[in-house]
């Protein structure tokens, strides 16, 4: 799976993931409080400049942002029809700014950096016994590892439909896909336990068998 990270050496690339996430959250709150179209317009321009500094390129930016901007425009037009033009402008500018900033953070922060930051943030929860922080990275890795295989299985099931002259329906595709995929859970879990990857307290698997 390709990620939305873009290699580069801009200011945002050099900032730590934590700094960027905290700044993004703070700006988000400030923007929700802010209701002046003029100030929001200025922040949109600033966000645009920051986004441009990352170096994503026009084509790639268009591909990435189009779906989100479509929903923003739909909502803005809706606001224009039912509320005032000023409120519509506020909505449009506020959302555009937020999305640009968030997209810039995404493009300049690698998956590994995020995972490390989230693992660190989860340590206090670990002390409360709620999660195992290291499971987060493991889970992310597992999904990236198995998406291509689930996709391959999906294609095989679709081919099987075709070979037997059956129409592919959501139900007849989803059920075998789920069963065939989840049946591997026992094997994968056994491999994780056998390799001692989750560390202490081996899972109580045998009880459940």
């Amino acid at each position: 799976m390709n990620t939305l990270y873009v290699t580069g050496n801009s200011l945002l690339h050099r900032l730590s993931a934590r700094a960027k996430l905290i700044a993004l959250a703070a700006t988000g709150i400030a923007l929700i409080v802010l209701a002046s179209p003029l100030l929001l317009g200025i922040s949109t321009l600033a966000a645009l400049a920051l986004y441009a500094s990352v170096g994503i390129g026009w084509r790639q930016s268009w591909l990435r942002l189009r779906p989100v901007f479509v929903t923003i425009f739909v909502v803005a037009i809706f606001a224009l029809l039912v509320n005032s033009p000023e409120e519509a402008a506020v909505t449009l500018l506020r959302l555009t700014t937020l999305v640009l900033l968030a997209a810039a953070v995404t493009a300049t922060t690698g998956i590994g950096e995020f995972v490390d930051e989230i693992t660190l943030a989860a340590r206090p929860l670990e002390r409360l016994g709620l999660v195992r922080a290291s499971d987060i990275g493991l889970a992310v890795g597992l999904v990236i590892r198995f998406v291509p295989e689930v996709l391959g299985r999906y294609q095989a099931i679709r081919d099987a439909h075709e070979a037997r002259g059956l129409k592919a329906r959501p139900l007849t595709l989803a059920v075998p896909l789920i069963i065939l995929t989840l049946k591997n859970a026992d094997d994968i879990a056994a491999a994780i336990d056998a390799r001692g990857i989750r560390g202490h307290k081996p899972a109580r698997r045998s009880k459940e068998r």
Partner: peptide, 28 residues
């Protein structure tokens, strides 16, 4: 939660190849 986490950290896993923090700010 794992699925949304993947989207948040920048994997294009949402329908239509969307992902990243931007989608968590958008109207939907």
């Amino acid at each position: 939660l794992i699925f949304l986490l993947l989207a948040a950290i920048g994997l294009p896993v949402l329908s239509g190849g969307r992902g990243g923090l931007g989608v968590f700010m958008a109207p939907p």
